[in-house]
Every structure is written in structure tokens, then in C-alpha cells.
Write a protein that binds this DNA or RNA. Sequence first.
RNA 1: GCGGGUGUGGCGGAAUGGUAGACGCCGGGGACUUAAAAUCCCCUGAUCUUUUGAUCGUGCGGGUUCGAGUCCCGCCACCCGCACCA
Length: 836
Amino acid sequence: MTDTRFDPSSADGRWQRAWSEAGTFTADSSSSKPKSFILEMFPYPSGRIHMGHVRNYTMGDVLARYKKMRGHEVLHPMGWDAFGMPAENAAMEKKVHPGSWTRANIEAMKAQLQRIGFALDWTREFATCDPEYYGHEQSLFIDMYEAGLVYRRSSEVNWDPVDMTVLANEQVIDGKGWRSGAEVEKRKLDQWFLKITDFAGELLDGLGELKDWPEKVRLMQENWIGKSTGLEFSFELSNGDKLPVYSTRPDTIFGASFCAVAADHPLAQQVGASVPAAASFIEECKRGGTTAAELETAEKLGFDTGVTAKHPFTGEPLPVFIANFVLMDYGTGAVMGVPGHDQRDFEFATKYDLPIARVVASDVSEADAPLEGEAATGDGVIVNSDFLNGMSVEDAKAEVNKRAEADGWGEGTTVWRLRDWGVSRQRYWGTPIPFIHCEACGVVPVPKDQLPVTLPEDVDFETPGNPLERHPTWSKTACPKCGGDARRETDTLDTFTNSSWYFLRFASQPVDAPFDAEEVAKWMPVEHYIGGIEHAILHLLYARFWTRALKHIGKIDVAEPFAALFTQGMVTHETYSLGDGSWLSPDEVRKNGSDWTRIEDGASVTAGRVVKMSKSKKNVVDPDGIIDEYGADAVRWFMLSDSPPERDLPWSEAGIEGCGRFVQRLWRLFESLDPAASGEDKALARKAHQAIVAVAEDIEALSFNKAVARIYELTGAAEKAAPSESRNFAIRTILHLVSPMMPHLAEEIWSRQNESGLIADAAWPTHDPAMLVEDEVTIAVQHKGKLRDTLTAPKGAAKEDLEALALASEKVQRSLDGAEIRKVIVVPDRLVNIVT
RNA sequence: GCGGGUGUGGCGGAAUGGUAGACGCCGGGGACUUAAAAUCCCCUGAUCUUUUGAUCGUGCGGGUUCGAGUCCCGCCACCCGCACCA
């Protein structure tokens, strides 16, 4: 009855149904087992699953299955980040409703995911566009509003003229919209904001506890939050006003030779109103580009307002400029210029011939050393600064702060780069913001018993802009307070809001509340969160913020949502192009020897760089076709093999073929198991025990490539071994070790060996610690730092014995060639190094 | 400019300061077969050498050490993130 080949096309589906029918991966929160919440970033339902998804979810899947084998109750859910602009774009292009487009995509992608055999708890599946989900989100939004974490203000926003929507700061890249790539404009609109800045300090400090997050991500968030400490103080101006400035270097205050304000600073506006030249300079500043290259080369430009600022210590009048390098939205929008010790100020002062004084020197004796070419931004002692002379930079900062505070003209402060999160979007396909505008009562939250505020179905996308605003009746409602005519808010929430709390909804799904705090406590925090590095700042910071905000208002008792974060690399593929620069897909080309040609007409093709799979470069391989050809297990195995998971994985036809071969190799090995075989093969048994430990360690460290290599090694050894009880043990061990990675093959073998139940429910094999220890070791013998011979010795042999053994070697003697031995270093069980 | 990462065979990559190149892919040779597929076996860092073997070899230059891919100092290249943040 033995088949010579494993047939995934029949086995895969059969076992997927078996898991589903048995509810194998349904998480039970009432279980007394230790709990593991394994989560991969949920996908946007764009239409098709791509290889990046497959890699991401395969990693999480191996972890989830492994944890289950280790006796954990595992929550491994899946859902859909279903709001967003592509659905509206599709609506415009294809004349379909965003909802039906999204639903169809979800259905297709779910079927694709199921074909790969992921151990997911589909009973908890939801899409963020479900009214049940976004209704609860509206309720949380109102809770946050009532706690003072939501506010509304008129603000200059980043307006994307193509997508006709507002973008968050994080969505503006080099002055362009992150999706449309269009030049972003400034507009004033009434906007909803979340007070993420209230949590800036907490979010920063919290990073310190996230030991299992990549250093890189923590640093990116740290830089994004951007904490700086300094002195905020005011200059008295010659026009009678005060000019508040912020400086991180109050120690250099005696080196100040000018002040500068941003083009949109009130003082600049005031001067601009009466001086036409100032007004035109301000205009010029606004036109200046904001791309990296432009900023790099941008000349420091200023306009002298004629107003002067009185130095708080010397009383000297300092000219006040409008300058193009000062930003209104950082600090106070005004700075003191210290050319000697700030590079921008140095360039500015050089251009406008302002004094450049040295107030920090490497030593007191260097007080008069000229500053040439650039500002001195390093550490040193304070010079030419009256009462600060001789102090360290640190002491001088403290001293100036102290005097400013004592005399009441300044205060030590902390300034953050982080801005409040603007969440208003003038789009249809998002969570409606649950507020009502009443002429009499102002802005009123929708009463919770009227939630969810659902999106209308009858909308048109013929014209750009917000269909909710155009809808004839949807926004018309009664004021919950006075009952008078009122208007619904037509903005929807930024889609990042949807992904800021979905993990809580996975953990518990009551009908009448967003989640249940006790259930949440059972699962949270997520033990392993896996996804792309592209979410290092936006999604991960917002999710951290929501979690802390919900804790702050007493909804949950978790501060950090993700205990460990793993950012996996991309799936890449070679690119193919014709002479004219047009791209070809992998199935349009063929390799002839070392050259590539187009199959269709034999045209010469250039094989180019290996880059992320993308439609534009046509270097995409569709998972469905690969599964048809090789089965789910081969694809899963490929995703785990070779490349370390944090690095890019180059897809190759040869690679997947190799994986397909290995699936069959394992099949034959399993089928070669001879229950009647007897006898011990200690070396093989030892290898199996060692693999049990090593593979477990590798999986726990997410070093799947190493786990794969060890399984290959043990497989090779088992194949070569003669039948024995030990060999059968090794084969059964391999079956368990590969079961999280190749679950379909494992189940098929498991059932053919008449084991009861599913291997998915089986335990991780136990190892015998005594079997981990070798009784013979290979000793390397070195002379003159080079390997001369290797010899076998019993484990734990005495140093003297090893030395004698080494000297007895013919090869060693030849290398020594009669030289005098000065020293012999013996590392037990490892090596002998002879020094002459 | 600032911050971070990476650099090892033809390729992806292994390697608690202790035998560099595990494992996979590619390539070469052979077995089986009427033939092919499938499978199996052997070889596969470079140079020299008939073999035994020798020398070189982890981006570059120094250093520490009996011993360095690994630790230290100084460079180079590439990749990623941020960016006029006072």
C-alpha cells in the first residue's frame, strides 16, 4: 500500500478540512494551559495574497504550531485591515462599490490562505469594515474624547490634491503624498486630533522595556518621538513685544549674535504686513522645496526685520531676521543664533556678516582660537561668557537655566518632535467619526446606543472628494442634545486607527463592547508580533499609543501591546529586461546556458538586480501557481530555508524545485520505516536527540533557516543508516520536527502509521539529556597557528593524554621538524596547540 | 549631515575567541534504464602538486592573542531610516 510519491493535491485539502472540522486551532481562553498569542500583521485585502504574505504568515504559523506542541494554548487569529483608499480607487475605476470590491477580495484571499494550511483560528475572523468592528471603534473614540484625548481644531493640514484628502505628517514623504506621490499643499481645515503627544514621554520610556524588539525599530521610534531638553526663554523686543525662543544650548547664550523667526511666525507676519519686501521674502520661503536634495543645498536666507532683541545678560541689541531655515512647528518657531556653535547659524552669519564669537573651547587657553570654516559643535569649556567662564557645557546649561528661572524670563523645558495625530480623512471608506454638529449645542458625540454610525450604501464615486459630504440625506440628523436639526460629521478616521486596537478584538469579541478586559488580560500582550519593517513607525507607534490610552482610561490593564516584535525581510526575485528597458516576467524568459532569452521569440534578455517582487518590475511569482505545482508544504519549506528571516529571501525556481524534492525525500524516508527493525545505532540516536534540542532552540530564536539545516542533516544521516530501532526513532523524530513546517505531509504520514488523532495535537518530542553528550570527540592539533592534524579521543581525556596523542601524530612531527617546543596549549575536548 | 545595518565559495548562508565554508542551490562526473523521468553515489574556495601534501583565503590596513570571520583601532563599499528639530 505504499505510494512512491506524496500527492499534495489530494492530501493538502484533506488535512485542511480535518483541522477545520476538529477545531484544532480554535483558541480556548478558559484553558488552564499557558497562553501564547501569536500574531502577524493582518493584510489589507488588495485582491491577491503575495509571497511577502506567505513568508510572513509561514513564520508565525511555525511558531504557533510549535507553541501548541509545547503545551501552550495558542491564539493565532486572522482578519482584514479592510478600510482604505484602494477600495475607493477601484470604485472609481471599475464602478463597483468599495464594500463589494473589498468583500470579494477577502473571500479570494481567505481561500488562498487556507490553501497554505495555516493554523489559524478562523472563528475570530473579522474585517475592520464590519459595522460591528468600527462601531466599537467609534465607541472607543468617544471614550477617548470624554477623557480629553480627542480634540478638534482648525489646523493647517497636508492636503493631497490627487487623493483629495488630508495626510498625517507621517504620510508625507519628501513633501509628497505617500500614496499618490503628488506634491502636498497646505490648507486650513477643522480637523480631529488624537493627543498622542500626551503620551510622548511614556511612549519613549516604554521603548526601554521592549527588549525583544529590534534595536532598529526602537531607535526609529525614539527619533520620531524626538525628545530634546533645553531652555525656553523670551527676548524683549525693540517694538515692545516679547520673542519666546527655544534652545538646547543655553550655555552658548553669550555667543548669540542674532535672532531668527520662521516665515509663518507672528512677528514675520506682522512685519510682512507693513513691509512689502518682507512679504515677498516670506512668500519665497514658502515656495522653497522640502525634498532632501533641496534642503541639503538650500542656502540659508534671511530678511532683517529691523526689530532688535535685547540680550538677557549683556543687554546688547541683536538683529531679528526672518529666516528660511527656522520651522514654525518646532519649539517656538524662533531661535537665538549662535554662529560659533551651530552650523546653520554659522552659515547664516557668514552670509550676512554677523559676529561669530567663540564661547566654547577645548581648553581655557584656546578662548581666542578663531572659528574657521565651520561651527564648533563639540564639547568643551565655556569661554568669553562672563560668569559661565571655565564651566563645562553641562554646568553652564544648568546655571543659565537656574538664572533664567530665578529672574523669571525663561524656563527649562522638554520639547518633542512628535505631533498630535490628525485622524480626519475626507474619504468614504473608513470609520465615520461619531459626532454631530449642532448650531446650538456645538459638537456633540453620538449617543452610544445609536452606534454604530454606519456608512450609507448608496454613494457615487463619479466625482473626486468625499461622497459622504455629497450624500443627499446621510449627514442630516437630529441633535442628540436639543433635538434640533443637525449635521453628522462627514470625515472618517485614518485607517491606522483600525489597526491600532484590532489585536484586542482578536483576544475577545463580546457583542456589546469592543472587548472584555478580563479576556484581554488572558491573552495580551502579543507574545510574537511579526510583520514588515515598513510599519516601524506609523502602525507600531499608533498601536502602542492606543494601548496606553485605553489603559489610561481604565479599559484594559496592558501598557505595551507587543512583547516581542519581529520584522521579516522581503521576498525578492531577479529582474528581466529587454534592451529597450521594458520588464519581462519570470515565466516569459528562459535560461540558455548563462544567457537569458524571451521564450516567445528568442530575443536577448538581460537578467538584472534581485529586488523586492513588484508588479512594476514584473518580477512577481504568484503563490497559487506554485502551490498547484509543488503543494503547500514545499512553499512553506522554501519560505523558511536558507535566508535568515530578517533578511531578504531571493525566490528562485531552482530553490522551490529543491524544496519539492525534499518533500518527496522525506516521504520515502518515512515510508522506509521498518517497525520490526531492532538494534541500536547510538550515533544516529544521539543525532536525533541533539536535533530535538537544537531545532527547538532555533524555532524559539526564529532562526528557521538553521532549524531547516539541522533537519536536512538528520535526514541525511537517517537515510544512510541501516535499519534499527534507533533509526526508527530518528525518523519519528524528524516527523515531529518538520510537522510545524510541513504539516500536511506530517499528518499524512502520521495517519498512515496508524497513530491516533492529529499530529497537530501531538507534543514536541522529549530528549534524553544523557544522549546529548558525545563519548568521543575530534581534537584539532595546531602548530604555528595552523591545523596539522585531527585526532579522535575519548571525551574528557586528560590534558597530558591529549598532548601525548598530538605529539605522537606523524603529521604533527613532520610539521614540527625537530623544532624546540616552547609551550603546548590544550583545550579539553577541543584542540592542542603546539608553540615552537 | 545624523542614526542604524551589512560585507564569508558561482549563489543563499553556517560557525560559545579554538578544525572557516555546516545545510541548501547551481555546476561536473558516474550508477540504474532500451530510453527518459524519478532516484542514488562521488567531486565541487583558490593556486601549486602525480599522490602524499603545501601555500593562500571571511571588504581593506593595523593591533591584541598560543590561536581572530568573531575582540580593539583606523578606513572602504553597499543598503535602510531620518533630515534645516534650534
